[in-house]
Amino acid sequence: MDHLLHLDRTLDELDPPHWAPPAADATGLVRKVHELRRVPLGALAPADLRTLVSQQVALPYVLPLAVRLLIEEPLLDAYFHEGDLMLATVNAPAPAWILFPDLRAQLRAAITALPEAAVARLPRGGAEDLARFVTPPEMPR
């Protein structure tokens, strides 16, 4: 399924079940994620995608959107710092990428094309996160 065909629909529509409103004492992050599930996919900003990916919400729908942005601008500053969307995306759990081998390959290519100086400016651990994503896992013997 091409998950980019549903840009006019929300995660609550595409990723059942519909989430109930957050509890009255929910954190700001929980409230934000609940709110983002009611926004049409095409209206999600880079910061929204970073939040959803880092919280591992509806990854089959948000990973393709994030990768589409990252292919154009790998070190996009979505909210916190340069490369924050990239780091959230490469840290998505490995099973989330099973549906998207082509997107994963495109993202790997974008990462390997980054200048070393740009990678060195990432927050502590960022270069390692990118290297771990780019390096294929070893096959069990």
Results as ranks from 00 to 15, higher is better:
L5M: 15
L5D: 15
L5K: 15
D12V: 00
P16T: 05
P17Y: 01
P17I: 02
W19E: 11
W19K: 08
P22T: 02
A24H: 14
A24F: 12
D25F: 06
G28C: 13
G28H: 14
L29C: 12
K32G: 13
R38W: 12
A45E: 15
D48R: 09
T51C: 09
V57G: 05
L59H: 05
V62D: 07
L63Q: 00
P64R: 06
L65A: 09
A66S: 14
R68F: 07
L69P: 06
I71F: 10
E72G: 15
E73M: 14
L76R: 08
A78H: 01
Y79S: 15
H81P: 08
L85T: 06
A88E: 03
V90G: 00
V90I: 08
V90T: 07
L99I: 12
L103C: 12
L103M: 12
Q106R: 12
Q106S: 13
Q106P: 09
L107K: 06
A109K: 01
I111G: 00
T112L: 10
A113V: 01
A120W: 10
R121K: 15
R121D: 13
L122T: 03
P123V: 13
G126V: 08
L130A: 04
F133A: 00
V134P: 01
P137V: 00
E138V: 10
M139S: 13
